[in-house]
């Protein structure tokens, strides 16, 4: 418990969200009453829950291979026939080929991730390593702004980006033919989501500050003696030392933006700019007959990158979530 420092707890957020020693304590799981091991009943419950977590994903895959009326006409668990060409059909079912939407999602999520990670690292470093008047008050202020709901920001943000910054349309970008993406007529529509990300985000500032504070100050001192300035120290000492936390920030941001529906819906009006979530939404109301098989194939494509990332970084994601209470 030595790491816990009450002054680090944000305003109004109970210490559980801080759980600073979660890292230290990992791997020590106590029984409810200090008993040893779980009962058979516990395993049964856990397996049932695992089934409920994974089955919808299987169901999606199974349905993506059915024929066009498969979902409406038969009740089967194992696919009778596999229509792999559903994926091909899905790929070209909308105005633009599906990889355009995938690339758009990668661009938006990637840029947001770069922006948030860099800016939050710098701001967190400022709070964790420099003494200045009003530091704690300013920090609590940042945390308190998390309470501002997006509901009241949605319309004025739109007014700001469309009326003041004129990011509603324009910005032509020609891409070489081999990319298969074609021309972006309205690339500016991406900016309302990307630019604000470069100015930091409260939760991740909080998360990174916690981590930077846990690094011994001797490391900074040693670098300072060698003549390194603050930026050098940030880059060569702090950033490598908080790599696990940075991974969490990167992955959580990427997943969060990849999954975002409302932001793209408001700003990415041009179908060529659609992210994969919007493309999926486009599938739903597109035909009078619902092609559940194509919907499921497209859903699977939208989940695949997330599952792959999760496969490699689940440890950092879970630690980051436990520490900050943030959702991907």
């Amino acid at each position: 418990m030595a790491v816990r420092n009450e002054s680090t707890a944000p305003v109004g957020i109970p210490p559980v969200a801080v759980a600073p020693s979660a890292r230290v304590r990992r791997g020590r799981y106590r029984g409810m009453g200090g008993g040893s091991g779980g009962s058979i009943g516990a395993y049964v419950v856990v397996f049932v829950v695992c089934f409920f977590c994974l089955f919808p994903l299987y169901w999606m895959f199974e349905n993506s291979l059915r024929n066009d009326v498969g979902a409406q006409t038969s009740i089967t668990i194992i696919p009778r026939e596999a229509h792999w060409d559903n994926y091909q059909r899905m790929w070209t079912a909308l105005e633009y080929p599906f990889h355009v939407f995938l690339i758009n999602s990668f661009v938006v999520a990637g840029m947001v991730t770069i922006g948030v990670t860099l800016s939050c690292a710098i701001v967190a470093y400022g709070f964790a390593r420099f003494r200045f008047p009003g530091r704690d008050v300013l920090f609590y202020f940042i945390i308190a702004t998390m309470m501002i709901p997006f509901a009241i920001m949605m319309i004025p943000s739109y007014a700001l980006f469309i009326n003041v910054f004129h990011w509603g349309n324009g910005g032509v970008i020609h891409l070489p033919g081999w990319t298969g993406v074609g021309t972006y007529q309205n690339a500016f529509q991406f900016l309302p989501q990307i630019v604000p990300a470069f100015f930091g985000s409260p939760v991740f500032i909080f998360l990174l500050r916690q981590f930077i504070r846990s690094i011994p100050y001797d490391l900074d001192e040693a670098a300072k003696v060698d003549g390194a300035g603050p930026l050098r120290i940030l880059w060569t000492v702090i950033m490598p030392a908080i790599r696990p936390a940075l991974t969490a920030v990167v992955v959580l941001n990427f997943i969060g933006k990849w999954n975002d529906f409302l932001g793209p819906l408001i700003f990415l009006q041009d179908p060529h700019n659609w992210t994969i979530e919007l493309a999926l939404n486009g599938f739903v109301g597109r035909y009078t007959v619902t092609f559940f098989n194509l919907q499921m194939a497209a859903s699977l494509m939208s989940m695949l990158p997330i599952v792959v990332i999760y496969f490699f970084a689940s440890k950092q994601i879970i630690e980051g979530v436990t520490l900050s209470g943030v959702k991907g």
Binding site: G31, G37, C50, M60, F261, M303, I318, G328
Partner: peptide, 29 residues
């Protein structure tokens, strides 16, 4: 989960997986 179950990390990973799935696709399922 807090009991000493074997494979706790695996269960935790599986339990958390749905939480990061995109809302659009999961509701479609």
């Amino acid at each position: 989960l807090n009991q000493r179950l074997r494979g706790i990390n695996l269960y935790r990973t599986i339990f958390y997986l749905p939480a990061i799935m995109p809302a659009v696709a999961s509701v479609l399922i």
